[in-house]
Amino acid sequence: MLGIRRFLVSLCLIWVAAGAWADDRVLRLSAPEALTETGLLKHILPRFSLKTQVRVELVSDRPDAILGTEGRAVFEGVGQVWHLQVLNPDHPASDRFSGWLTSQVGKNTVTGFAPDGTALFSLPSARQVVAVQVEADGDAVLGLQVSRDKCSRCHVVEDGKRGFGIGSTPSFGVLRSLPDWEGRFAGFYVLNPHPAFTIIPDVTPPFPDSRPSPIVPVTLNLDELEAILAYVTGMPAADLGGDLVHQ
């Protein structure tokens, strides 16, 4: 009798383990009807599953992740910017989906969806991503200090300053000359290569365990981001000697 009980307990443990393993390979995703009706999810989810062996279930309750209006902006189309909100960041399937959707392969898959020959979705513009998060009314003096402390490892942040920054990286003055400079600075953390090493609490998602920051992360809060915007707003644009051609 004792042997049977041990067998049943062992069998239950095997079932529990098998269930946990199966859940690791299943993502419960919620998305509004307005998005599902476009056909985008039928286009991207099988490709994600083929690449990762993670099966996606579209659900209306208890999801692991949500495509909607909150979280990290991942693409835009049909009249709005779509965000990915991961509700269960410790779930391996959630981590795989977030990583794939924000990878170059995932982005290309989304922007390549063109059922009638015209792409319905594009990558989110920096200005739209941050419009509800920051305003350029910060402390310009603080912005200069934050720029020196946290941006000068790659950029020249002050006109006339030499010996700082990376030669192939544009200076703040050059960036200020671009017609979309405000969106670039306000949403720099979603523009490559910044997402790989930038942390803004309550805005950027945590780095996946499988893809830690390749360098010491740059961490700043929204007040510091506003301060940088205020500083750059008041600085002169670099004179490049001719009309700029934005590519």
Rank of each mutant, 00 (worst) to 15 (best):
D209T: 12
L220W: 04
Q128V: 07
S210P: 03
V190D: 02
G99R: 07
L8A: 06
R153V: 14
T111N: 07
F48M: 09
D243P: 04
T233G: 04
D243K: 11
D202Y: 07
K161T: 12
S168R: 09
V157G: 00
G68V: 15
G138P: 00
A114V: 09
W100E: 03
V141I: 12
E33C: 07
L67V: 15
I199S: 03
Q104D: 15
R62T: 10
Q53E: 08
V216I: 14
L191C: 05
D180R: 11
T69I: 13
R25E: 02
Q145T: 01
C151I: 07
E70N: 15
A31P: 09
W82V: 02
V81C: 00
V74H: 05
V134E: 04
M1Y: 03
A65I: 13
G183P: 02
V132M: 13
H91E: 15
D239C: 08
G68H: 15
Q145W: 01
S98V: 02
V146L: 05
V232R: 01
C154G: 06
A186F: 02
E135N: 13
D23K: 01
Q80I: 10
V110T: 07
S98N: 06
H155I: 03
L222T: 09
P32W: 14
A22P: 00
V129D: 00
P201N: 03
L142M: 14
K42T: 10
A17G: 15
V130C: 07
N221P: 04
P89E: 05
R47N: 06
W21R: 00
E158V: 15
Q104H: 11
S171G: 12
S10H: 07
G242A: 13
F121N: 02
A18F: 06
D239L: 09
S30F: 12
V54M: 01
F7D: 03
G138K: 00
G71L: 10
G106P: 01
D116M: 05
V232A: 02
D243A: 13
D202R: 10
P170C: 14
K51A: 15
T111M: 12
T118A: 13
W15F: 10
S125W: 05
L84E: 02
K161Q: 13
V190F: 06
A196K: 08
C154R: 08
I4H: 04
V16Q: 10
K42Q: 11
D202W: 06
Q247P: 00
D64W: 08
F172L: 14
F207T: 05
L191N: 05
C12F: 10
I166L: 15
G163S: 07
P92C: 12
Y189W: 11
S177V: 08
L67E: 14
D137G: 05
T118D: 10
Q85H: 14
P115N: 11
P201V: 05
P170G: 15
G138C: 03
V190K: 00
V130M: 08
A186Y: 00
S94L: 11
S125R: 14
P115L: 14
V156C: 04
L45F: 06
R62I: 07
V218Y: 04
L58W: 03
P63G: 07
R96P: 00
